Computed example of a mutant assay.
Amino acid sequence: MTVELILAQADLTEFTVRPLGGGTYNSVFRVTSPEGDFVLKVAPSDQPGLTYERNLMRTEAMFCRLGHAVAPVPEVVHSDFSRALVNSDALLTTWLPGRPLFGRDDVDRPLVRRQLGQAVAALHEVTGPGFGYPQLGLHPTWTSAFVAMFDAVKADAQRFGVVLPCVPLNLSVFDEVERPALVHFDLWDGNVLTDTGLTGFVDGERAFWGDPVAEFVSLALFGSIESDRDFLTSYGFEFTDSARVRLAAYQAYLYSIMLVERVPRGSSDPAMESLITDALSRALDVLA
């Protein structure tokens, strides 16, 4: 009933709806109607989560509205954050063609990575009004924003009984970041869509305003972006020692999140936990 109410509010009179798998936070549906094909996301109303997991749908709507102008990002068709009709935030966007890059061996991966480099570089040209997660309040500097982001994860770890290693941060390297770029921060292969080439990227609810280098973590999840010359050449990025230190800090941040979120999500896969902890250890070696 919830889905039907939302779609009626979006002025869709005839439609078929089917659940889409792959989401770890929102309920996601494929909507087919005479008006076109769409994706409907409905936020959980009472799911316990991490500190930054507040009003994520609103952040995704912001990401789509800004990103759609410069990159292959879904277009917002309808949103309802009033919670008057249903007790959740809802977002309806256009459907992008293609299938996730994850696990694919039937695509020209170097071509896709080059196209992705160009698209991500364009996305990072979008500049925000401050640093950090928009749903939590922005900071005047990237250093203060990132410290607050990491402190929140540490507090979440304590709340959920997760022991995290100490992560040393050299704050001076973050002071080098002077422009708040739009960062997706979840561009692993599962969120990159392809056909014969890149068709788009999705799931921008974890976006923030910050250092573009942070994007390189999920773009090479559990690996090293420096081995992806197709992407980096197309993007137009050359690493410095300072950028490598910042990247390691962002890796430590994301892998800390992934360890903590396992508790509220009820995940108990030991192989995945080992993968995360090994990647976190490699990042800590750079920061030591």
Rank of each mutant, 00 (worst) to 15 (best):
E14G: 06
F15H: 08
R18W: 03
G23E: 08
T24E: 09
T24Y: 13
F29T: 01
T32V: 15
P34V: 08
L40R: 07
V42R: 02
L50F: 07
E60K: 04
A61C: 09
F63N: 01
R65H: 14
V77N: 01
D80G: 06
F81A: 05
R83Q: 15
A84T: 15
V86A: 09
N87P: 12
L92V: 02
T94Q: 10
P97W: 13
V107A: 03
R114D: 03
A122S: 14
T127Y: 08
G130N: 08
Q135M: 08
H139W: 06
P140I: 15
F146K: 02
D156L: 04
R159D: 09
P165K: 14
P168I: 01
N170R: 09
L171S: 13
S172W: 12
D175C: 09
D189V: 09
L193D: 00
T196D: 15
L198C: 08
G200C: 13
E205D: 13
W209Q: 01
S218R: 06
A220I: 04
F222E: 10
D230N: 09
D230L: 04
Y235P: 01
E238P: 06
T240G: 07
R244W: 02
R246P: 00
L247G: 00
Y250A: 00
A252T: 03
S256P: 10
E261Q: 14
E261A: 13
R262H: 13
R265I: 00
S267F: 12
S268F: 07
M272H: 11
M272T: 14
S274V: 09
S274G: 09
L275M: 14
L287Q: 06
L287D: 08
